[in-house]
Amino acid sequence: MSDAMLWMLLRGTWETIVMTFVSGFFGFCLGLPVGVLLFMTRDGQMLANKTVNRTVAVLVNAFRSVPFIILIVWMIPFTRLVVGTSIGVGAALVPLSIGAAPFVARMVENCLLEIPHGLIEAARAMGAKPLQVVNKVLLPEALPAIINSASITLITLVGYSAMGGAVGAGGLGHIGYQYGYVGYDALIMNVVLILLVALVFIIQFLGDYISKQVDHRK
């Protein structure tokens, strides 16, 4: 393998990491509040509101059902508006974040549903306001589960980021496809695969470790 190839793989790894973690971060910034909103407006919860809950749920489902490769193309005008260009890593981050957000929202909602209802009741009985319940009860109590969801989200994003190649964002997936699959270079393809597998393993391991550290239930 040539030096140039090595550099390319290195750059590809870096691009994949950037795309995964940065879009994961923005995906959470968007998805977490939506997930909390979905939970809090549910029937029987503190801010129960059927209209809001249904509207948000429909939006979340709509975005989740768009195939990611189509989302990238469909969002080009918006992407251009936000980052000024429709090609490169920056351009891939926009659809990746938007694609991850509804996924994160549902994950977060599910994590919150796992919290025993008695805890919310106890907080209300102590005179906690809705925002205090979210910050002091829901999020801290669901933290171990949310961290697990974060590793699942990041791993999904590793896969999604391979499609970033469609807008010239590069990344490992793109190299594997271009040089390995199209160019019949089995070595490159296998190295890319090993790098991706390693990345996924590292994310899963770190996620499990951190989740265990913050979990005081046992």
Binding site: P116, G118, L119, E121, A125, M126, P140, L143
Partner: peptide, 15 residues
């Protein structure tokens, strides 16, 4: 806040 409450299943915050 003038009325404390305790429960059968304690409802303590595990975190």
């Amino acid at each position: 806040r003038q009325m404390g409450m305790i429960f059968q299943h304690f409802n303590l915050l595990s975190s």
